Computed example of a mutant assay.
Amino acid sequence: MTRDSNRALLSVEGLGISFGGLKAVHDVSFTVQPGEIVSVIGPNGAGKTTLFNMISGIYQPGLGKVRLAGEDVTGIEPHLLAQRGMSRTFQNLQIFQSMTVLENAVTGYHLAERGPVLADLLGLASSRRRARASDEGARKLLARVGLERAAEREAGNLSYGSLKRLEIARALALNPKILLLDEPAAGCNAVETEEIDLLIAEVAASGVAILLVEHDMKMVMRISSHIVVLDHGEKIAEGEPATVSQNPAVIAAYLGAEEPEAVTC
């Protein structure tokens, strides 16, 4: 499949970073189009999360550029990227365990709210309207991820898979153009992984671009429209799942073999 760079929502151009002279990521380029699911895969230590951290503004790249909808957003702080349409989840859950599921979902709206602080302090009508809108929006998001019945439960009492879906719901509160998911199925059982599969596919079908880092290769091969493969910080392959799974460099990187079979695990 030929990549149409003119349609790219996200463009990663020659991105690189070094730590103490060690090249953690070197000269990585790819694009993500609206409604597309692009997965970044690779063995442990390949540089996947470091790449995500550069794209999402946590790390300042040493080389290259990140463009969002054509705008150079390289190194822009995460909250400013969120305002431009980029939202992200993390490997480790960022959930407030002692708050309710609904309260956690509502927190996703706070960044988007731009009402005056004084109005909030005084409890003015404008502040109450925003609070009602956030509550209504959060409930709709919980229904979207299948957690509407758990809205009043304490988040810490949810299953791990439900917490993963809650984190995705909170990220969606910003109404993103692109959603970066860092190992959304990590620690989940087969049923929970399937639920997350379906949710990611539904979000992409709504037009939101998905950039995904995931170790579950069955999940990656099942839902991805395009795959980027890293090894030792460099891109070694890119393409559709069927093509990538047969690539000798990818197979060798995962299995350390000269003539291995296709990557299907």
Rank of each mutant, 00 (worst) to 15 (best):
A150S: 15
A253D: 01
N247R: 09
G256I: 00
R129L: 05
D120K: 09
M54K: 12
N175E: 14
E113H: 06
L181G: 07
A185C: 08
V229I: 05
A185Q: 13
M221R: 14
V66E: 03
M1V: 09
G207A: 01
R114W: 02
L199I: 04
A131G: 05
D72G: 08
G64W: 11
G21W: 11
A252R: 01
A133I: 12
L199Q: 03
G35T: 02
V229Y: 08
V191I: 15
E136C: 11
A253E: 00
E36F: 04
I223S: 07
C188V: 07
V40I: 04
E258Y: 10
I37H: 13
A150G: 10
V40K: 07
A133Q: 08
R153D: 02
G239L: 12
N247G: 09
S206P: 15
A185R: 08
I210M: 03
G42Q: 00
F52W: 09
D120L: 05
T107R: 06
G108A: 10
G239K: 04
V220W: 14
A143F: 12
I55H: 12
G137L: 05
G137N: 06
S18F: 03
I95K: 11
D197P: 05
A155D: 10
E238R: 10
L15N: 10
I196R: 03
L93P: 00
L9Q: 01
A237M: 12
G57N: 01
F52G: 00
L102Q: 11
Q94F: 02
H215F: 06
G207M: 01
P260R: 12
L102C: 04
S245Y: 12
R88A: 15
V145C: 00
E103S: 11
P184Q: 04
D27I: 07
F96S: 02
I236L: 09
D72S: 03
R222A: 15
R84Y: 06
F19H: 09
K140N: 07
E195Q: 05
T74L: 10
A105K: 02
A190K: 06
G42C: 00
Y160S: 01
N157G: 15
L15M: 14
V244A: 09
H26Q: 14
L9S: 01
E202C: 10
G35R: 02
T74M: 09
Q60G: 05
G161N: 00
M99E: 07
A131I: 15
I168R: 07
L180Q: 08
G161A: 02
S87W: 02
A8N: 01
E259P: 12
N175R: 03
C188A: 06
A131C: 14
V73T: 14
S134Y: 05
G16M: 04
E192I: 01
Q94Y: 09
L230F: 08
V38P: 00
R128I: 05
K235G: 04
V106A: 13
G62P: 10
H110F: 14
L180Y: 11
R170Y: 14
V25L: 15
E192A: 08
N6M: 09
E167I: 03
G108D: 08
P43D: 12
L80F: 10
R139M: 12
G57T: 01
S126A: 08
N104C: 00
G108N: 06
H226G: 07
A253C: 01
I76T: 05
P116V: 07
N157F: 07
K48P: 01
N247A: 04
D4L: 15
G233D: 14
A24M: 10
L174G: 13
S11G: 03
H226T: 05
G85K: 06
